[in-house]
Design a binder for these strands. Structure first.
Lengths: 173, 173
DNA sequence: GGGAGATACTTAACATGTTAAGTGAATGCG
DNA sequence: CGCATTCACTTAACATGTTAAGTATCTCCC
């Protein structure tokens, strides 16, 4: 193994040091978004946890609270969850009696999901602290800036929505 | 009661309809961030997938490519992964010979992780398309707006970092 | 009206997120 | 020195993300 010259600073022998040219990793857009979201969610998680809810379960309850009932697919779109995740979570929420399910009469494939009374009660117990946290975030960051940020995020989403739609050219089979 | 009046439109009986007052769900900051990030990652995932890498594995390789070697904890911070996730992924990356590990001589608890030659080779094969995608995103959204967005995201993170640090007053034990 | 294809989910399998507990090694202090 | 504490990581356990398959139902066209 006389393969490498001695390393002056320490006994290690790194295989590479900036061999592949790329942007600074920590400043990439995905990382920025990830970190920002984590910073926000970190504020909410403890409160949700106290009430025995995960972030996703909370999303589902919130989505359901605003409407009477929804098909699973529609709910997935609203709560921004993939079908399989939603399936599992609905199973658990139903077991906890937080939601109710009934298959549609007209189309036996569809099932209509709605929040139960217990679900509403749970939501009511979580909402105040959740709203308080959101208010605190808004105040810290600034309401105007927050609105601007959300505007930009929406535009970003728009820009990319067009992109991801019509092209599956390269390595699809 | 007669808790609820009959529902005129259909045979269902929803337990609640906007019973708990909350902001419009789809416009909450966490959702905006989640959707934006998903829109971005959707662009990258296919390319990574072709090379047999997940998003997180790619983050680790990128982080390692810029430095010679790093302790696991340091790497977790850089790649923004929790310890347990990182442990598993490192185990797998090591099995695939994409990284190398050696325990530090001075402190047997620490292990120094570095990217291997194979790892560098793999990175080199992914980087071009990854950079191209990033360039496309930048162009679509606008370089200036992108910079602004990242600036705001950083500020948001800052605002909340202070908040989450010094307070564990309420229901901690 | 019958069968091919599309739909609405659900299951399965594997990877990661998240919290708690475990393990071995270093540190500090009596 | 001895031992409790802290530290760096790993394992474990459970929930979700992600893709692929499976299942039942529905649609449409011949």
């Amino acid at each position: 193994m006389a393969k490498r010259p001695a390393d002056p600073a320490n006994g290690n022998e790194p295989a590479a040091r900036q061999v592949v040219p790329m942007r600074d990793f920590s400043r990439s857009l995905p990382m920025s978004l990830l970190r920002a979201r984590e910073a926000v969610m970190r504020q909410f998680r403890p409160s949700l946890r106290e009430h025995g809810l995960t972030e996703q379960q909370w999303r589902i309850l919130r989505a359901l609270a605003a409407i009477e009932a929804a098909e699973v697919t529609e709910l997935a779109r609203t709560a921004f969850l993939l079908g399989p995740s939603l399936s599992r979570i609905l199973r658990d929420l139903e077991a906890r009696n937080l939601i109710e399910r009934k298959t549609a009469k007209a189309d036996l494939r569809r099932s209509m999901v709605s929040i139960s009374k217990e679900g509403v009660k749970l939501m009511a117990s979580v909402a105040p602290s959740s709203e308080a946290i959101y208010a605190e975030i808004t105040q810290r960051f600034g309401a105007r800036k927050l609105a601007e940020l959300q505007e930009m995020l929406g535009e970003l989403e728009q820009s990319l929505a067009e992109l991801g739609a019509g092209e599956e050219a390269s390595a699809e089979e």
